[in-house]
Nucleic acid binder design. Structure first.
Lengths: 196, 196
DNA sequence: CTTTTCATGTAATCTGTTACATGATTGC
DNA sequence: GCAATCATGTAACAGATTACATGAAAAG
């Protein structure tokens, strides 16, 4: 007996299944959640959800709301849960980072140090906002779970994965921020030298 | 007088122009270089280089080699240099990271802690190899420039940008590594608790 | 003798972004 | 009055991956 090949189901699709392990949800909400750790937009997600239904990995229920549009609330099927577990055990693809600032950095010497400085200053502002948002999210989680030390969240809590990812983001953004600030200091140094 | 709109030239294209500021180069070499800080493959790059020629941003010369295939050596044109400077001054897009491990982490509670452990152990191995490669590259740069403190590289050196990017990668990978190791410890803790 | 490296290209397919499309409600 | 939020969808286009295609030399 061999498994039926699940066709056209990509990494993003597994990400959606992953979100649905916490609780049933609908497209609009899944979009806002997945965006926190995987770039995606509604033009991808609505068709993908339909495909997941076709493949029998999720099922949905039409839910009517008062003063709001109807929504389709999706849940994992048994087949969806099985597909998810198979995927987790498979080798994980290497991470892919696309950062335009890195490409600009490569030829940064072609600009004035002052231009370089404003380029990096803008990115630093971006990261600082990100960091604030993450701290808010962390605090929200603490309130919701009514614990102060989030590392006490049990392995099988529905919030365990989300907590790990908040920490990942904090670590990553902190390192990016440090790099930007270090580079900025270098630019300042070169600016000062030029003015001698 | 307004500038002619440069059409169909994307971020990867600017990345190629960026590489060409250091020295003229050919497709095969540009692929290996750009891969260090932007995911791309030859199926994209050869057609893009042709497009850049059509747009007059680069020009090429066919170069014959003994015992090796011919190659097309591309150089920046004046128009290419101008396009590059325009691009640097424009607002920079936010970085986009796609990491399958993050999606898996979100539903990690659905696996055994032992599975989680091997998932993260594999990624730790990957990052450690990455770090070694980076250290090699750093040492190579030190030898080539015959200096021990790379932060002394002048702003207008052709190696300045590359040096900044090596440091960025070191910072990033170190933070990823620390996160993985922290998560691994959490898994170990949970494993130990289960065995009580 | 087979795989890797060098070197370039195209074609098919898949993934991702932006625009088009609808429509009610809430806040400014 | 106008933009944003909620909610779903499709279509057109752009970007990325993989496979197909060639061919010589070097390394194992």
């Amino acid at each position: 007996m061999h498994k039926r090949e699940v066709i056209g189901i990509n990494t993003l699709a597994y990400g959606l299944l992953s979100l649905l392990t916490v609780s049933p949800s609908y497209g609009y909400d899944l979009i806002s959640k997945i965006k926190l750790f995987w770039p995606a937009n509604h033009g991808q997600i609505y068709p993908l959800l339909a495909k997941l239904v076709d493949n029998g990995l999720v099922s949905y229920e039409q839910v009517q709301q008062c003063d709001k549009p109807d929504k389709k609330v999706y849940s994992l099927t048994e087949s969806g849960k099985a597909a998810l577990l198979d995927w987790i055990a498979k080798p994980t693809a290497a991470p892919a980072l696309r950062d335009e600032l890195a490409l600009k950095t490569f030829c940064i010497r072609k600009t004035e140090p002052a231009t370089a400085r404003s380029l990096f200053a803008a990115r630093i502002g971006f990261y600082k906002q990100n960091l604030k948002d993450l701290q808010d999210k962390e605090n929200l989680l603490k309130e919701k779970l009514a614990i102060d030390d989030l590392s006490q969240i049990p392995f099988d809590s529905p919030y365990f994965g989300g907590y790990l990812l908040i920490q990942k983001a904090v670590w990553n953004i902190t390192s990016d921020l440090q790099w930007c600030e270090w580079a900025l200091k270098l630019f300042e140094k070169h600016l000062a030298e030029r003015q001698l």
